[in-house]
Design a protein around this nucleic acid. Structure first.
Lengths: 243, 243
DNA sequence: GCGATTCAAATGCCAGACAATTAGAACCCG
DNA sequence: CGGGTTCTAATTGTCTGGCATTTGAATCGC
């Protein structure tokens, strides 16, 4: 694990990269303790603050965790899906908001990915997943719900659908795509009629999943995508006309 | 933007979180310059090293970039798909290697997601994407290729297929899934016969994409998944028997 | 033996300083 | 007056040294 002192890049970035590579290549294994900050400083021939900056970089990516105290130090983190998910969502959200991705493109991606899970979910979902979906549909049908709460429930519904596939890799990937869409969805004002149509389609999906019917689930999802795209288009068109 | 000095969490983590929230909520816009480290230190009533640790955390997530010099400072980064992709791949790779995800699960997720792109790619792929796919197929058919190089070419082929959908959100999500599989694929030893079958299926996919035939593309992809799963199973079984 | 105390190691944080870099201002000269 | 050069100020990058806090373990007293 070496760094190049003549490299113009930040020393802390180089050190972070060296340690990251060691973790990825398996040179450092999960729960292994890194040398103390003082020892690392000596190893890389830099000061302790520089080492600390490097460690903070790694901590920001959940690659390591730190503990204080006598047996403390920096430890290689077991990167769990739960820990990685918030970062994935944050990144996806920012990517959408900063890159002028059209609603259409984001929506297409989301439903394309979701359709990938749907047949698996119809086949494998547990009663729990189905119950969550039904509960969210019920929540969505309550009057007086704000648009934000409606969208949040929509996200919960779709996450239950995705989780039903029982594949953590899929759930992880989809969480980013689905959650990142929420700010875009929140820009839409839903009329009572819009909500009714969406709830109907959600019910269709839940029914198909309950029946274990992958093809029907796919069809209902596609209908929901069409509905969502049309709705967004009309909302944005109306907004453009008003201004 | 405030922090709680009584919070047990690290001050640098709190500060990083506060700035991150400001970026996500739109309080800080792209390319906006943050206050200097000295000013931030005063604002949050902490020392400059603490502020620096916070900024490094954000830099590790590509949320900010820093410039030295007179007009330097920390700037809110426009998070691009290109910049986010390597992190996405690193995270996905570590998730697979650290969580005892079975080859079967990872492979299922990858092909499920890829099938989501396939019809779109068949419809929209440019000649460039097709040419890349053909070129990779040609590379794969060369004798003397190491298993690693074969897998790398496989990844390139599939990325071209995914990129053909022309949806950056899909490409971003899929890059993680496809690239993260590579270390797992590299564990497989391919016989000449294995390669020939894979190349045949790749050619089927390329042909279907060229014809703009989404359904056939899907079928070929599914056949490739089955082939891959079978191959992996036999390789792992042989390995288990040998040991 | 067991509980309380002390100790040592490690991270978290701070103050101050210097080096390196960079853009812009000031200056000089033709 | 214009162009090139130098100077300067601002800012990040790094270092030194130190203190505070936490925490496990060793030690001591009972």
């Amino acid at each position: 694990m070496k760094i190049d002192p003549k490299n113009p890049a930040d020393l802390s970035a180089q050190i972070a990269g060296a340690i990251r590579d060691a973790i990825i290549s398996g040179g450092l294994i999960v729960d292994e303790r890194l040398p103390s900050e003082a020892e690392l400083a000596e190893q890389f021939d830099v000061s302790r603050p520089t080492v600390r900056e490097a460690l903070k970089r790694l901590a920001a990516q959940s690659l390591i965790r730190t503990q204080r105290g006598a047996t403390g130090g920096a430890f290689v983190n077991r990167l769990s899906f739960e820990a990685a998910q918030p970062q994935q969502i944050t990144t996806s959200t920012l990517l959408l908001s900063m890159n002028a991705v059209s609603f259409e493109t984001a929506c297409e991606a989301r439903y394309a990915l979701e359709r990938a899970c749907a047949p698996l979910s119809a086949e494998r979902r547990t009663p729990d997943h189905l119950a969550t979906m039904r509960a969210e549909i019920h929540r969505q049908s309550q009057p007086g719900l704000t648009d934000e709460a409606f969208c949040a429930s929509d996200v919960a519904f779709h996450r239950a659908l995705v989780d039903g596939a029982g594949n953590p890799v899929l759930s992880y990937q989809l969480a980013g795509a689905v959650e990142a869409m929420q700010p875009l969805m929140n820009m839409i004002t839903f009329t009572a009629r819009d909500r009714a149509r969406i709830i109907t389609l959600h019910t269709d999906i839940a029914d198909a999943v309950e029946a274990g019917d992958g093809a029907t689930t796919l069809a209902a999802l596609t209908a929901l995508e069409t509905e969502t795209q049309d709705l967004a288009q009309s909302v944005f068109a109306a907004r453009a006309a008003r201004s």
